[in-house]
Every structure is written in structure tokens, then in C-alpha cells.
Design a protein around this nucleic acid. Structure first.
Lengths: 167, 167
DNA sequence: TGACATTAGTTAGCCAGCTAACAATTTAAT
DNA sequence: ATTAAATTGTTAGCTGGCTAACTAATGTCA
């Protein structure tokens, strides 16, 4: 999905600093690494999901449905929680419904709306996917100490709070 | 570009842990945050670039050309450094050339190949973009201490080394 | 030298996001 | 009560990645 495999070396940074003195080298280095790692993790995730016939988008939708105890949610709520547009959710649900992992049910309260629920096959698909997914995640971070994991999570949360309202 | 706006709460994690005991909560929490932050930063970056008529993909290509002192590179090398397929590079260059930011020049050594160079307008475009970009990056991380920035960069580099060969 | 493999760039067509515009319905305001 | 505004899901069409297949040129090795 993204961006610049060859991160700048310190020589490259110096060259750019000469041209553009606003450059803050450590912060830009971190910025690029965050983009790079996010991109790499995404690629790994989608590669894991492909054999199950899913993309990360459709997989997340299944998970959001599984989160609900009722297992019934309205598409616009799903779109909000997932962070995609309603139109995108329509596509995701079309495909998931075609694959019989999800079912649309007419809603009695609101004539505009629809409710979506996980089918038995959908739950089964999650049961196939999740254990391997969790083991994969554990494996990706096996080299990193637990305290480091937690510190980093905190910093990222702080960063996310700062980011809110910008995008 | 990606993924799950509503990260799981600790209740959600507990529910999933009950269903899927392989779940390592701290590592999964970090995994999701890295994806989330990468996605948010990407969105912010593309929003910054849009008024200049660029996407991050085309912008990176310009930067890679600017990195070269000769300012002349072959498309396949660009594709490798950027981490996209040659076919994608063809698209990027088509659009950049249409916008006169880049020029393709026939290569004498190798009849199959082409060389790409930044035009004056391309350099000028970078000069418009980069100072604001660097100030933006500085702003995004203003709340985070310098030592934290450096520690995090190191951890991400360690992580990236571990990721190599997986994707 | 000649056959075969490899490499460079392109083309064509897929996919999953996006925005904009729409009809149907519900909600709010006077 | 009626009109105006907002919301729901969908459709249509754009974008920027991707893979697969192609042509042209170059390298390799019997």
C-alpha cells in the first residue's frame, strides 16, 4: 500500500537539511518509519488473510459483527467504527454477503435502514482465522520486550490523541 | 487507506481472549496501533499534498529523483527504491510527465531502458512542498520528547529487521 | 553463432478505497 | 401539519495500487 522502501540515510538527510533547513531529522526519521512499518504490517496481514479469501477490510467487518453480543448492527454504524465511508461499507457487505459470511435483514424500526448479522459460516471463518492471526502477531513482536511493547503503545496513544482533529 | 477506527477496549479484548486464547493482548494492541497510526499519518500526508496536485506516491518519486546528484535515474531503480512494481512506476511517471514535473530521456547504453530526470518545474514543486512538509512533521511530534523519539525509532528499526523476509 | 533465459518498460484489466449524487425515509421547525 | 433538513443505503465513476502478459533488447552458454 505505501511508501518509500529505502528510508533516507543520514547522508541523504544532511543533503536535504542543506536544501531545506526546516528539516527535523529525528522526527522525520520517526515519521517515515511509522509509515513504513504500518505499510509492512498491512502487507503481512493481507498476505495472511488471502488464503481465507478475505482482505483486511472484509475481515474487520466480520470482527466488528462478532464484537456485538447481538451480532446485529446497522451498516452506517459499522462504517463509522471501521473508519470507512458508507459507500465502501456497501461494497464490503455486498462481497461478504455474496460469500454467505454475512446476511442483511430488513429493519422494522427504520424503513431506510438494514441490519447486518454474521452467518454461521461467517463465525466459522473467524474461528479459522483468529488463532493463526494471534499467533502471527505474537511472532512478529517476539523480539521486543514486554515493557517496551507497553511503553510504545502508550506513546502511540498519546500521538493519536494529538493527531485527532488534524485529519 | 486502512483499518478499524475503534480500537478494541480492554473489555473487547477479554471477550476475544475467551473465544481465542492465543490472543496476546499487549502485542495485539501495539500491532493495531501501529496500523492505525500509519494509516492516520498517511491520510494527513496525502491531505497536505493534495493542494499541490500530488499524491504521496508521485511525491516520493520526485524526492527520489532529487536525492540523486545526477538527477537521472532509470525507472526500474526508482520502482525498487520506492517499493512499488514497475507497472506502478510507469503510471506514476506518466502522470508526473503529463504534469511536466519529470522528463523521460532515451538511454544510449541500453536500448530497453529509459532515464528519468526532474524538470525545473519538478524541482520548483519540491521547493514549494518540502519546507511546509517538514514543519508539519515537526508539529505532529511536538508533544513527544526527543529521547522518546529516538528510542522509538530504534525499536521500529529492530522491528523492521525482524519483518524482513516475511512479507 | 544461435537458442534460451532474463530484464526493461508498457499495456490491460482487477480491486478496494474514495467522492458525488440520488431516492427513500425520518426528524425538526414553524 | 407541512415544509425543510438530515440520515440511510445505494449507485456511478475516479484513483492508485496490484498481477499477468506482452514486446523489445540484452546476456549467457553450448
Amino acid at each position: 500500500m505505501f511508501l518509500l522502501k529505502d528510508l533516507p540515510t543520514s547522508e541523504t538527510f544532511k543533503k536535504f537539511k542543506a536544501d531545506y533547513p526546516d528539516l527535523d531529522i529525528p522526527r522525520t526519521a520517526l515519521f517515515l518509519r511509522l509509515l513504513r512499518v504500518g505499510s509492512d504490517l498491512m502487507t503481512i496481514l493481507d498476505a495472511y488473510l488471502r488464503p481465507f479469501g478475505l482482505t483486511h477490510g472484509r475481515w474487520i467487518t466480520l470482527i466488528l459483527l462478532h464484537r456485538e453480543d447481538t451480532h446485529r448492527v446497522v451498516p452506517s454504524v459499522l462504517a463509522n467504527k471501521q473508519g470507512v465511508k458508507r459507500a465502501t461499507m456497501t461494497n464490503l457487505l455486498d462481497r461478504l454477503e455474496r460469500d454467505a459470511l454475512v446476511r442483511r435483514v430488513a429493519c422494522n424500526q427504520d424503513g431506510r435502514s438494514v441490519q447486518v448479522e454474521l452467518t454461521k459460516a461467517g463465525k466459522q471463518k473467524l474461528d479459522e482465522i483468529m488463532p493463526g492471526y494471534y499467533r502471527m502477531v505474537k511472532g512478529l513482536f517476539r523480539e521486543i520486550e514486554s515493557t517496551t511493547i507497553k511503553e510504545m503503545t502508550q506513546v502511540l496513544d498519546e500521538l493519536r490523541r494529538g493527531l485527532k482533529g488534524i485529519e
